[in-house]
Design a protein around this nucleic acid. Structure first.
Lengths: 180, 180
DNA sequence: CCGATATACTAGCGAGTCGCTACTATTGCA
DNA sequence: TGCAATAGTAGCGACTCGCTAGTATATCGG
């Protein structure tokens, strides 16, 4: 087993141990992943289709996961006025609280050396980029790093969607993101 | 969302994308993880209990996963002569072939800078160690890094189990592993 | 040597994931 | 206006997974 396979195995095992721990709480792994995403995504990127593409799952599966989250009261649905087919999900207060809960993995990350964490995040991000390209799926980057982003005195402006963005929104994940 | 949570999210997303791709093949993600483990584990560490502990799942779940792998012909069962309760699974030729198959993640790892890969593996390994300690589960380390390992002219010797080890075996995962 | 206790594994249940196909509702384009 | 594309969902079958209960075997104290 070469290094690449070892790294793959490490990532999978870490995710699996983290997922195993998830079962103790109110959410299962799929629901937790969806909740995490919804907590980071901007208002243009919170539909079932976007969640599905982000997680590499199908729309049908994600549809059920989101319904479950809604039943449990961690997200709320909001039908779009402009496009009556589409639904946007957002975290409720309970959902936001849950999304901030610490997991096994983040607990293990506490106490690691600062520069190691920086390196790890950079490396994982690069790896994810490569995986996403290999998979021909969308990058789902952070708004302010996008080629369509124009900074303003407060917040920014999206030249693709032609909308003003609050300062908080420029830090969120967007499904339209394209690397500069 | 702080850096620790971002890293957790990255690891989970990478694993999820890798898992999504798995569905195309003969195995599902759980089966793939079990197969990976069996391909690395030594002859003392290939029982359902060990797989369960390694993956953070229950014995019942793993039992079914291994039966499925056996049905598909990727592993074979071998009941222990000394302890008739226990079963050891090993990869068949088909299983070994499948375990060597490239995944989305390892494909994405190809072409990354060498020193980055070294850093990533080191960092992930350290993180896993911390997670395992936090979880109070066994480390499942590589045989030759164990405190019970004594090198010999060819292979080694385990002072815990009092058995001789072939050179190949010293590179395998052991459930008895204790850090020196 | 015997009985109690511990250990290894499995069966079966219920809830839920997940890919898939088929379907409805809506939109947008020609 | 008509028709293809898009967004979401229902329902099916296979499977995961935690759980409880069960069998078989092992071990240990008396």
């Amino acid at each position: 087993m070469n290094r690449n396979e070892r790294i793959r195995a490490l990532i999978n095992r870490l995710a699996r141990l983290d997922a195993a721990q998830t079962w103790d709480g109110a959410l299962n792994p799929a629901q937790r992943s969806a909740l995490d995403y919804l907590g980071q995504a901007n208002r243009f990127s919170r539909s079932p289709s976007h969640v599905a593409e982000y997680l590499g799952a199908t729309r049908g599966t994600v549809s059920q996961t989101l319904k479950a989250l809604s039943r449990k009261g961690f997200v709320s649905e909001e039908r779009s006025a402009s496009d009556k087919r589409s639904i946007s999900y957002q975290l409720t207060d309970a959902g936001r609280q849950l999304a901030d809960a610490k997991s096994l993995l983040s607990a293990a990350l506490v106490g690691r050396a600062e520069d190691e964490l920086v390196l790890m995040e950079t490396a994982l991000r690069g790896l994810l980029g490569a995986a996403v390209r290999a998979n021909q799926s969308k990058p789902f980057g952070i708004c302010h790093t996008c080629r369509y982003f124009k900074p303003q005195q407060s917040g920014g402006f999206c030249t693709l969607l032609q909308v003003a963005l609050s300062s908080a929104e420029t830090q969120q994940i967007c499904h339209e993101h394209e690397t500069a």
